[in-house]
Every structure is written in structure tokens, then in C-alpha cells.
């Protein structure tokens, strides 16, 4: 036990990290990279704006921390007991107090304006070209394509032992979501049991799946590629092991894929009652 602890705390993982660097290179977009320190690459309009907003925030955050640290450092050097044996007795300075109330308010307004813009942009109802329906289960996802023949399939994680080269552990699934690029997609999210959260960082998607309700969000994928996500609300024993994998393809390939998928995942039986047209009562 002790050696194991030591190994794992000191050196053991270095080899692991090395292997990861190699594997990670094959998946530059759509997931994090080793030692990454910032947001994942953006591949949707919302995530692009999140990047912009976060960059602005970072500047403000770092400035505030540096300012406070600087003042602290000056105080430590200048006002220690040795250099300043006689403390001042100043306990008030109205002007100063007004300034340090007013300046933060200005900074907050500077933050709030782009923040609310981003929020309302992300919420703006789009006229979607298609719908993806997401249903969470303990511990896998199932996806329905109501506009393409209403076929549905389950998406289960692939065990580490059977992964192929380049497939990331804990992120790879047997049946990924396939979606077309440059298409506005309505995403409906719900669950069959506990609360889960459907999240794909690069696409700026993160929406709770709550029993008894259907949440809506949207995405428009800008680049072809594979995007990964993980369930982001504690949902029980295998919470860590219900990945989300999105394959974004061209519209043509998407059309071809839906044809195959319809057969592969045998569409659900159509309603027995002949589709009666909607009636206007008025």
C-alpha cells in the first residue's frame, strides 16, 4: 500500500502523462489537451462568445489579483514593525471609501453588459432546421431524431479494454451522435430516471436533464470533427462513465448517415391511428 501510494503520488503517473500526450495529439479539437489551462476550442456560436467573454473576464480577474497583491507586497515591505515603528491612527477617509465603492460598481457594469448580451444571445429562440432529442438514463444516453424518421438509439460507453488506438478512454461511445455542420439544431433534453446533464464543452452545450420536464437548447456546429463531453450532474455510481460523443459531418454525409441509421436502428412503429390533420376549431 505504502509503495503504491508513493508511486502514485510521486512518479508513477509520468509515464501515463507521456502516453496521453501522444494519444491526445490525434484529437486536437473536440476535447481537452494535456496540461491545458483554458477553455476547449470553440465550435459553435455560443461557445465562441463564451471564449470572448471569458478572455475579457480574465483580464479583469488578473488585474484585480495583481493590484491587491501589489498593495499587499508594498504594505509588507513598507509598513512592517521595523520600518514603521509608529503606527498611524487613521481610521477614516470618506473620499477613499466612496472611490472603492464606486470603482467596483463601474467594473461590474462593464462585466454585466457583455454578460447579459451573451446570455440573451444563447437564449434567443432560433428557427431550428432539425431536432435532436436526448434522453438520459443511469448510465447511458439515448438519442432520437424525430425529423428523420424518428429513429432512436442508445449510446453506451466503450470499455477501456476494447478501445482502438486513438480512442480516448472514458469519452468513447459505441454509437456517437451524428450531426450536420452549419445547421441550426434544436436539442431537447430529458431523463428517464435521476437528474443528469448533457454537456459538450466545445459546443457550449450544458443542459440539465430533469425528470418530468423537457429542456431546450440549441447548437450550430461550425467545424466538422468529433466533440466529446461527459455527464455533468451527479447521477449515481457510474456518473463518471456516461460520455457524450458528437460526430459533426457535412450535410451530405449526414443525409446518407440518416438513411443507414434508419435501417440500422429500425425506426419506431408509426402511430396506428392514421395521421389526422390538425383541426382548427374556430
Amino acid at each position: 500500500m505504502t509503495t503504491r501510494i508513493l508511486r502514485s503520488l510521486i512518479g508513477g503517473s509520468l509515464t501515463g502523462v507521456g502516453a496521453v500526450v501522444a494519444a491526445g495529439a490525434a484529437h486536437a479539437s473536440g476535447m481537452a489537451t494535456p496540461w491545458q489551462i483554458n477553455l476547449q476550442d470553440a465550435a459553435s456560436p455560443v461557445m465562441e462568445r463564451v471564449h470572448g467573454f471569458h478572455n475579457m473576464l480574465l483580464v479583469i480577474q488578473i488585474s484585480i489579483v495583481v493590484l491587491v497583491l501589489g498593495v499587499l507586497a508594498y504594505i509588507i515591505v513598507r509598513f512592517n514593525a521595523k520600518r514603521n515603528p509608529d503606527p498611524s491612527r487613521t481610521a477614516h477617509n470618506t473620499l477613499l471609501e466612496i472611490v472603492w465603492t464606486a470603482v467596483p460598481i463601474v467594473i461590474l457594469v462593464i462585466i454585466a453588459i457583455p454578460s447579459l448580451k451573451l446570455l440573451y444571445f444563447s437564449d434567443r429562440a432560433q428557427d431550428p432546421d432539425m431536432t435532436l432529442k436526448v434522453t438520459a438514463h443511469q448510465w447511458y444516453w439515448s438519442y432520437t431524431y424525430p425529423d428523420h424518421g424518428d429513429f432512436a438509439f442508445d449510446s453506451l460507453p466503450v470499455a477501456a479494454e476494447v478501445l482502438e488506438a486513438g480512442q480516448p478512454r472514458l469519452l468513447t461511445v459505441d454509437n456517437p451522435i451524428v450531426l450536420p455542420v452549419d445547421t441550426t439544431i434544436q436539442v431537447l433534453v430529458t431523463t428517464d430516471d435521476v437528474i443528469h446533464n448533457f454537456a459538450v464543452p466545445s459546443l457550449g452545450l450544458k443542459t440539465d436533464a430533469t425528470p418530468g420536464r423537457v429542456n431546450e437548447t440549441w447548437v450550430r456546429i461550425s467545424k466538422e470533427g468529433t466533440y466529446y463531453g461527459m455527464c455533468s450532474e451527479l447521477c449515481g455510481v457510474n456518473h463518471y462513465y456516461m460520455p457524450i460523443q458528437v460526430k459533426a459531418v457535412s450535410k451530405e454525409r449526414f443525409a446518407a448517415w440518416t438513411q443507414e441509421a434508419k435501417e440500422k436502428f429500425a425506426a419506431r412503429p408509426a402511430p396506428a391511428v392514421a395521421a389526422a390533420p390538425a383541426q382548427s376549431i374556430q
Binding site: H137, P211, V273, A275, A278, S280
Partner: peptide, 27 residues
Amino acid sequence: NVNSQLPWQFQPVERQVVVRPGEEVLI
């Protein structure tokens, strides 16, 4: 949506309708 504890099938008959504002609609 049907909770998996319920052995039912449940589906809309028409997937979507286009409505004018104020119009009363039966589906």
C-alpha cells in the same frame, strides 16, 4: 416521453402543426 416504469407507447399523432395566433387548435 414515457417513463420506463410505464409499459405504454405514447406518441403524438401529428408531429407538428402550423397555427395562427389566437386560433384554437385540436391535436
